[in-house]
Design a protein around this nucleic acid. Sequence first.
DNA 1: TTAAATTTATGATATTTGTCATAATATACA
DNA 2: TGTATATTATGACAAATATCATAAATTTAA
Lengths: 202, 202
Amino acid sequence: MRVSACKTTQVIKKGDTIFEEGDTLNGIYCIRDGVCKMTKLSENGKDQVVKLALKGGMIGQRSLVSGEPSNLTATAVNDMQVCFVPRSEIIQDLQKNPDFSMDVLKNMAKDLKNSDDQLVDMAQKTVKQRLANTLVYIHQKFGSDENGFLVLTLSREDYASIVGTATESAIRILSQFKKQGLISTKGKQIKIEDETGLLRVE
Amino acid sequence: MRVSACKTTQVIKKGDTIFEEGDTLNGIYCIRDGVCKMTKLSENGKDQVVKLALKGGMIGQRSLVSGEPSNLTATAVNDMQVCFVPRSEIIQDLQKNPDFSMDVLKNMAKDLKNSDDQLVDMAQKTVKQRLANTLVYIHQKFGSDENGFLVLTLSREDYASIVGTATESAIRILSQFKKQGLISTKGKQIKIEDETGLLRVE
DNA sequence: TTAAATTTATGATATTTGTCATAATATACA
DNA sequence: TGTATATTATGACAAATATCATAAATTTAA
């Protein structure tokens, strides 16, 4: 992390991409502020969110380590500040500093575990359960504002592409959750009313 | 890889586990021969195959690096020979040998990419497409014997748990592929008849 | 502030997939 | 070599999810 005594702080506006699938990355990005979604375009033309990256996180390591072009697109979900650390610096540090290597390894191990867990959920849980889990995740990770609404505001389409379903299905299930008193909504804003209930969804 | 001038070569019989979800690993296993499936038990009680590991591969690195218990169970799909490299040796090497660290990093980066790709497929492709892809993958990875049957023989249940579906659904789709002339079967053995066709399945 | 554009919402219907039952095969083993 | 056991196969039906249409609400931007 001390690598990120970084020079260039970039501002990325909501909806803009930091890099895209296929881009060759000459370094990694550390997120100073804001949130971005890491997506992959599937053959059917839909974007699938693989991961949300937030303040303090790094993106682009995988591609940097493997030397391959990125397999994911990074898009700002809200306004962001990122700083860029060039490839050369990282590689140098990886060579010289075993502790840093270990840190990066641990980080990647964590990503890998998450990815495996998500894979299992995707395969075995219903859309309803995945959506409920996503809501709880976002609540726990980003919290709620003074009115109780989730701080991170995502479109229904974003939720659908995290959960891996059609936008209409996501909307329909949110409506159902609303009827069951598990959440309430105001426009695109969502308030968690019953977290335990959400985790119990079948 | 030179680490694996290993001492203890273990023989694991088909169906036996090398380690299980929750086990604390005191080292990693290098696969000398055979194939194992890495699975995770989902809440609904079904095993989900996350990865197949084969000759030349290592298993248990993630857990070793993160220091956490394994999140996966490793089960031999056929008779195996594995050799165990104790944690201490690996850690030492990681500290001293930056090239080795880089190798492990690259390995993990590859796993991570695979996992992400699989996640997207799981979310966006139909069961039929996933099963077709799995057949092609197994064909390309393990080849066919003199009679044209896939060398790696998996049960329909295994296929189902790779693809993330019910065993009956996997069987049904295989029957369908058979009718379409994409594959033929003899007991649990499968022969790929039309690989291009399999890749075109919708 | 208001009109246009986007997003959310919901109905009707088709398709996919899961579940339970039961039969037919194949495999393992005494 | 036969018999028990496990696996593969298939039908009937239920449940989950996708798709297409269209309306309502909200957000954006002129």
